[in-house]
């Protein structure tokens, strides 16, 4: 199996990865928060020659990263990035995790302290079919939000519009944005048609 085939196969479940990779500059130093088994970092190494480190709290993910030859630091994101110097990474990535962390605000600000820029992807709670489910009186369930209200790890659900307000209020510049549905960018009305949002952001100077 070639690296490209492998990447295509393994990325099938993660449409945001290609969007993220497109924004990672070649040879850059990348920190991936909540890196899981290291799939994204391996992809960035293959496609961008990125020098990457992952952070994850789960024992099985740390072991999977070691098996996959991915640099990993076992640490609890909720405790911040205290061990990391300001500006020590070109890019800090948080993919599909922001909705599952408790201290959302602190983590985004920490990302922008440690990284010269950050890439964040999250499931968009504002997509029309989710709004419809809420309008019909049910908590929404979708491929991006596959959990029931009682077993979801997601503690902060938010929309593209919410995130942009958050950025404005926290002096965060949005450098690029793409909203995806089924792996393809949506055109107009991102908050209505996008199921996943990916942002490249930076601290406003």
């Amino acid at each position: 199996m070639t690296g490209h085939e492998q990447a295509r196969i393994t990325l099938s479940g993660r449409p945001d990865f290609e969007a993220i990779a497109a924004w990672v500059r070649p040879d850059s130093a990348v920190l991936d928060l909540g890196c899981g088994d290291g799939l994204l970092l391996n992809y960035l190494k293959q496609t961008r020659n990125a020098r990457g480190y992952g952070i994850d709290i789960a024992d099985d993910n740390v072991l999977a990263c070691v098996r996959n030859g991915v640099n990993v630091i076992q640490s609890d994101l909720e405790r911040g990035l205290a061990g990391f110097d300001a500006g020590s990474f070109d890019c800090v990535i948080l993919s599909q995790t922001l909705q599952a962390v408790r201290r959302t605000e602190e983590i985004v600000l920490e990302m922008l302290r440690v990284g010269r820029e950050a890439i964040v992807s999250f499931p968009n709670f504002g997509r029309w079919d989710l709004r419809l489910q809420v309008a019909l009186g049910r908590m929404p369930v979708s491929p991006e939000l596959p959990y029931q209200w009682y077993n979801t790890p997601n503690v902060h659900l938010f929309t593209i519009a919410d995130f942009e307000d958050f950025c404005a209020e926290h002096a965060i510049a949005v450098l690029e944005r793409v909203a995806l549905h089924r792996g393809r960018p949506v055109g107009a009305l991102a908050n209505f048609f996008g199921s996943t949002a990916v942002y490249r952001i930076q601290k406003r100077r």
């Binding site: 130093a29 020098r51 480190y53 024992d59 740390v62 990263c65 070691v66 640099n71 990993v72 630091i73 076992q74 640490s75 061990g83 990391f84 110097d85 020590s88």
Partner: peptide, 19 residues
């Protein structure tokens, strides 16, 4: 973690597990 920081600052390949 002090050691790990030294490794990261030098961009050395590293895995750190806190068991």
């Amino acid at each position: 973690r002090e050691i790990v920081k030294g490794l990261l600052d030098n961009r050395l390949d590293a895995a750190y597990a806190e068991i």
